[in-house]
Amino acid sequence: MTEIRIPDDLWDTEKVPEGAVSSWLFEDGEEVTEGSSVATVMAEKTEYDIPAPASGTLSIKVAVEEAVTPGTVIGTLE
């Protein structure tokens, strides 16, 4: 199992304490390929692509509009 984790340095949490998942490009249980964008995360009007760190079956842990910070695990790949 591989975690889909928001990179620790994606944004400066001193300036922007938290963001939110803005979209999932794949549904729970779908197959994704390493490197393809699986989700987008938005913090202070800036949107970040979250690529799949491995290939596998997606399991979503954080729903759209829920709050996240750098380091949050938003899903896993089996």
Binding site: F26, E31, V32, T33, S36
Partner: peptide, 8 residues
């Protein structure tokens, strides 16, 4: 087959 999914 895995897809290359994108927003519009």
């Amino acid at each position: 087959m895995s897809q290359r999914r994108m927003t519009m």
